[in-house]
Design a protein around this nucleic acid. Structure first.
Length: 197
DNA sequence: GTAAAGATCCACT
DNA sequence: GTGGATCTTTACT
C-alpha cells in the first residue's frame, strides 16, 4: 500500500509508453500532483462525492481516471491505494522522448510557428499531456499494468532532483491549497511554470 | 431544461 | 501578466 503523496514522487522520472496503431510514443513524467479525497477539498472526489465523472476514483491503484476541464482539455490521473480510498495522482507535464512527430500531429502543431524554443510547449501542462498521448474518456478505468495501449516503464538510469511546491489553480480549496503535494523534476524545461502566488 | 463554474490554453498587451 | 475562448459536468430553478 502506497500513500498517494509517495506515489506522486515515485512516478516522477518513469516513462509512459503509448502505442497507437503499432507506433510508439514515449514520454517521461516530469511533473505530478497528489489528490487525496475524501478530506482534500481540491479533489474532485472531496467528501466522497461520487458522480458519473468521479466514480473512477474508486478503483485499485494503477488505473486511469480521465476528466475534461474547460471543454477540450483532457487530464490524466493515475489512481493510488485501494478501491475504497479515492486517491489519485494528476500527471501535469511530461517530456517527449520518442514519437515527437506523432505528438505534433495530435497537438495540431503542424500549422503553427516552429521555433527551436517552442518544443517545450508541446507537453508542459495537464491538458497538453492528455492531448499528446491521445487520451480521452474511453481511457477511464484502463489498467496501466495490463494494457497494450498505455503502460509505465521504470527508468533506473535517469537521475534527477525532486522539486516540491504547492499545487496549482486550486485556490478554492482553502487550507488544502497550501499542501506541498506537487512534485517535479528540477531543471527540466517541460515542467510547467510555478504558481502565480 | 437551464445555468454556472472549472485540477486549462492561447493570443494579445 | 491579463483576459477571452470554449464545452463538459453538475446542480439547481
Amino acid at each position: 500500500m502506497t500513500d498517494v503523496v509517495d506515489l506522486a514522487q515515485k512516478l516522477l522520472g518513469k516513462k509512459i509508453v503509448r502505442i497507437i496503431d503499432g507506433k510508439y510514443i514515449i514520454c517521461r513524467i516530469v511533473e505530478t500532483e497528489a489528490y487525496k479525497a475524501p478530506e482534500d477539498k481540491a479533489c474532485h472526489a472531496y467528501n466522497n462525492k461520487k458522480t458519473e465523472k468521479t466514480k473512477f476514483f474508486w478503483q485499485i491503484g494503477g488505473n486511469l481516471y480521465v476528466y475534461s476541464i474547460y471543454g477540450n482539455n483532457m487530464c490524466m490521473n493515475i489512481t493510488a491505494s485501494d478501491a475504497d480510498k479515492p486517491e489519485a495522482v494528476l500527471i501535469r507535464a511530461v517530456e517527449p522522448i520518442r514519437g515527437i512527430e506523432i505528438i505534433k500531429k495530435l497537438r495540431k502543431f503542424e500549422n503553427k510557428k516552429e521555433t527551436p524554443g517552442n518544443l517545450k510547449t508541446l507537453t508542459d501542462g495537464p491538458g497538453k499531456t492528455g492531448a499528446s498521448l491521445d487520451i480521452d474518456k474511453s481511457f477511464n478505468g484502463v489498467d496501466l499494468t495490463n494494457s497494450d495501449k498505455i503502460f509505465l516503464v521504470d527508468d533506473e538510469e535517469y537521475k534527477f532532483e525532486v522539486g516540491v511546491s504547492k499545487r496549482i489553480n486550486i485556490d478554492y480549496a482553502e487550507e488544502w491549497k497550501d499542501k506541498l503535494w506537487r512534485f517535479y523534476v528540477l531543471n527540466n524545461v517541460f515542467v510547467s511554470k510555478a504558481p502565480k502566488k
